[in-house]
C-alpha cells in the first residue's frame, strides 16, 4: 500500500490525476479504463477541494492511497473535510442527458461520470476521514 499526500487545492488535481494514470498503466488497464479512472478521481477530488475545503473555508490535504489486491487496482482518496457521501445525492436520470443544454440543470454530472467510468465506487467515513474508493478490475476491458 502506498500513500501520497497533496495539498487540498485545485492545482493538485493534475498531480492526483497523474498518480491514477501511472497506477493504471502499471497494472495494465486499457487506455479507456485508465482515462475513465483518471476522470473519476478528478471529479471526486474536485468535489473534496471545492466543496469540502474551499467553500467551507477549511484547508486540508487529499491523500491518494494505492493498493493492488485480488486482481483489482484500488485507489482511495482520503480527506479531512466534513463527512460527505457523494452517493447520497440524487443522481441525474437518463432524461437529464437528453434535455437541451440551455434547459439542463447544472450539477450531478461529475458523480455520474465517476460511477459510470469504473467498476466499483464506494464511500466510507473511517477514523474521522472521508474515504472515496475507486475499484478497477485488472485484466478486463
Amino acid at each position: 500500500m502506498e500513500r501520497k499526500t497533496f495539498p487540498g487545492t485545485l492545482d493538485s488535481l493534475a498531480d492526483i490525476r497523474q498518480v491514477a494514470k501511472e497506477e493504471a498503466q502499471r497494472v495494465g488497464l486499457s487506455k479507456k479504463a485508465a482515462y475513465n479512472l483518471m476522470l473519476a478521481i478528478d471529479e471526486i477530488a474536485t468535489n473534496i477541494i471545492v466543496h469540502g475545503y474551499e467553500e467551507a473555508g477549511r484547508s486540508g490535504s487529499v491523500d491518494v492511497v494505492t493498493e493492488v489486491a485480488d486482481g483489482q487496482l484500488i485507489l482511495t482518496l482520503e480527506d479531512d473535510a466534513t463527512p460527505f457521501d457523494p452517493l447520497q445525492r440524487d443522481l441525474p436520470g437518463e432524461e437529464t442527458f437528453t434535455q437541451p443544454l440551455e434547459e439542463r440543470p447544472i450539477g450531478g454530472m461529475g458523480i455520474y461520470l465517476t460511477i459510470n467510468g469504473i467498476d466499483e465506487f464506494r464511500y466510507e467515513f473511517v477514523n474521522n476521514r472521508n474515504r472515496n474508493i475507486f475499484i478497477s478490475r485488472i485484466g478486463e476491458k
Binding site: 490525476r17 482515462y35 476522470l39 474536485t46 443544454l101 440551455e102 439542463r104 447544472i106 454530472m109 461529475g110
Partner: peptide, 16 residues
C-alpha cells in the same frame, strides 16, 4: 487530452 465535468459545464454555460 482531458476534459472533466467542470469543462462540460463551461460548454453548457456558453450555450446559456
Amino acid at each position: 487530452t482531458f476534459i472533466s465535468s467542470a469543462g462540460l459545464r463551461v460548454l453548457i454555460f456558453a450555450k446559456q
